[in-house]
Design a protein around this nucleic acid. Sequence first.
DNA 1: GCATCCTATGCGCATTCTGGTCATTGAAGA
DNA 2: TCTTCAATGACCAGAATGCGCATAGGATGC
Lengths: 221, 221
Amino acid sequence: MRILVIEDEPGIARFLKQGLEEEAYAVEVADNGLEGLARALEQAYDLLLVDWMLPGLSGLEVCRQLRAAQNHTPLLFLTAKDTVQDTIAGLQAGANDYIKKPFHFEELLERIRVQLRPAAGPPERFTVGPIALDVATHQVFRDDEEIALTQKEFALLEYLLRHKGNVCRRQSIIEQVWDIHFEYNTGVIDVYMNALRKKLRLSKDEDYLQTIRGIGYVARD
Amino acid sequence: MRILVIEDEPGIARFLKQGLEEEAYAVEVADNGLEGLARALEQAYDLLLVDWMLPGLSGLEVCRQLRAAQNHTPLLFLTAKDTVQDTIAGLQAGANDYIKKPFHFEELLERIRVQLRPAAGPPERFTVGPIALDVATHQVFRDDEEIALTQKEFALLEYLLRHKGNVCRRQSIIEQVWDIHFEYNTGVIDVYMNALRKKLRLSKDEDYLQTIRGIGYVARD
DNA sequence: GCATCCTATGCGCATTCTGGTCATTGAAGA
DNA sequence: TCTTCAATGACCAGAATGCGCATAGGATGC
């Protein structure tokens, strides 16, 4: 997660940079509004931390111009002025939040997390070895190369990955993936496992989808 | 825009309800945490305004349970306690913001607008490849050339673009675009997808609107 | 009257499944 | 330890299914 701090007071800037880096954010600092705006426009930051009072271009102006340029990076104001009017102006200009100085660093961290949370989202993604499956986008990758799977193949792989590490019995697979709840005597599962392994190019060495003879299958790293 | 206020003090509740209704929000009030939580879970509000101190179930607990139930309605705390620890707990529990009493009504309004803005969508312009859709002006472009779409075509394209990257299931499309909430067995979606592709001149190579057989469709770059 | 919206239909083809043969496994017996 | 053998899964075609595409035509509303 990349954060750009636009702050002119070196002491505060250093304090923010160090504190945020300890939290594993990648932090860059711009010490005036003009430079900050330029950097924010040309690079893709995940969040901007902008001082309200800046030499050259004010924080409010930075925010306005950024939004005018269709850039919607989350933006938090650091403001010493705690009059209501100012904060309102900031929010109207398209800021996502503001925090009043002096602030507790913990509170700042929390507000940052809140802003970053929706962007991070909860993407349902499962993996085994080089295989990755994304439920939302209905995509499957092997080493970042997309593999086209049919619906049943996808459903089977998803089931195995959802239960990664646990052996999936044939009976359970037939019930959950094929929705067959009575006796069955078909070899469908084998056929699809075969197709999966082939499409995912899994060999004997890369047995991420193992056969448990007499029982079923497992996905294992 | 529907707002649920969970607040036990009748005076404040009345004040909020009246003030927000003047701003054209549809406001409902619950006077305890349990009822509020139940209402929030069963109905689709656009925003929750929750008092920190509530009889029965605390505001914090309401928030926790709501998020635990995978409900991500924006939630603002109204808190008299202004200790940092409390607000942090609130944000960690999944609240989007909090406001300290006593507050200026104007500031509350702004914070509400900020929360509702992302839901309403700041960039009301969506794109895939050479296709651009502008919600505000109700226009669609292919390479800067305007394409005339009917209302349904537009609605379908808008839905797909709003969920760009994610697979849209036929069931969801029928519900969201056609407002049909029961079983359906029509081929309307196909017909409209066909029309869209034709009007937007999308070929097999330019499959920005892909079909996911057996599932639905995706807009993808 | 015209554009829009939806239903109905046939067709092509990817998907899915069946049935079969071949390879592998693991346990029992020599 | 090695061999044998039955059971099980791997793999391969080919058949059946049904989904989505395309187009035409009827209903509806402005």
